[in-house]
Design a binder for these strands. Structure first.
Lengths: 162, 162
DNA sequence: TCAAATCCCATTGAGTCCCATGGTCACCCG
DNA sequence: CGGGTGACCATGGGACTCAATGGGATTTGA
């Protein structure tokens, strides 16, 4: 499964009073090249305290990935349960939101809570998907490589928020 | 994975007031032979204080390498986390920039900082990728072979900057 | 009917495009 | 052989486009 168009790059955008966020144009262009949707799917990230986001077409792919994982580890203890849990997280704890003509989405309240989002969000391309972080959370996570934290700090400075 | 077209050669170009740089024509021609993109991907070099650059197709290759790594070690402890970290570094700490009809890119401010770039850049073809250096940094790095530094000095002289 | 969500328009500043210049090199023809 | 000519490349500058964001107006749904 080699996806042709990959998400990459980073950006720090503001959340306005209405809860709106501009999805960076370079991410939107990948979404639109992968399909013709002007919609993104938001989910809780399985490893980090952030949100994972992708285009609707990728959601289907994700499903088959989970299936494949199950088949691989079927005989193992607890495989079924792990499978059920993964599926729940991937699909029940997710929401599809459209972006408008200026490229903004409205972050649903639940997702804002799950991702610990306040008034600034850091977008990070990760190839097949992209992530949406509260920059403070990222800086506080010790599993995050230092080079990436540098990117985050740089983006904050750029906005005059040392 | 033997790439057919390889980056080679060197050039010293200027960065103008807007932060624009001409990508040497001999590098662009490799990019366009590898795929039909007119964009390059910039990333911090993992070893040296310079930037690493390649075409989008090579980025996809990099991605599938990481995927394969994951599948190999899926059951292992911490495999998932290592995978996440690799992906973040490969994609979030990089930027894709298009070059215009005259072959120029705009060096993003973050990359200029990461690569210690000021007003002169040295391009070095290194096979699968190419590197972008501040010539001063290269001359000051004691891991760089003297022969290569000579190339750098030669390019500087050529421009009347002994 | 009220609040929330969507749409529409305005601003501004960064990024992109387009055209022009000058230099170098290769090629061609006298 | 030598000068002319044209192509291509690096570079400068001005004009313009578009992305990110703010605010008001309109619609939708409980």
């Amino acid at each position: 499964m080699a996806l042709e168009h990959l998400f990459q790059g980073s950006a720090l955008n503001g959340v306005d009073a209405k809860g709106r966020v501009s999805v960076p144009a370079f991410l939107r262009s990948v979404i639109e090249r992968r399909g013709d949707a002007r919609t993104i799917v938001l989910a809780k990230h399985e490893t980090f305290a952030c949100l994972s986001a992708y285009d609707p077409a990728y959601a289907a792919l994700k499903h088959s990935k989970i299936e494949r994982l199950l088949e691989k580890s079927e005989q193992e203890e607890g495989a079924q349960l792990a499978y059920q849990q993964r599926n729940l997280l991937a699909f029940a704890v997710s929401e599809e939101v459209p972006y408008d003509s200026t490229g903004r989405i409205l972050l649903p309240a639940m997702m804002r809570r799950k991702g610990g989002i306040s008034d600034l969000v850091l977008f990070l391309g990760v190839g097949e998907t992209f992530q949406i972080w509260n920059p403070e959370t990222l800086l506080g996570d010790d599993r995050i490589p230092e080079d990436l934290k540098d990117v985050c700090r740089y983006r904050l400075e750029e906005r005059g928020l040392a």
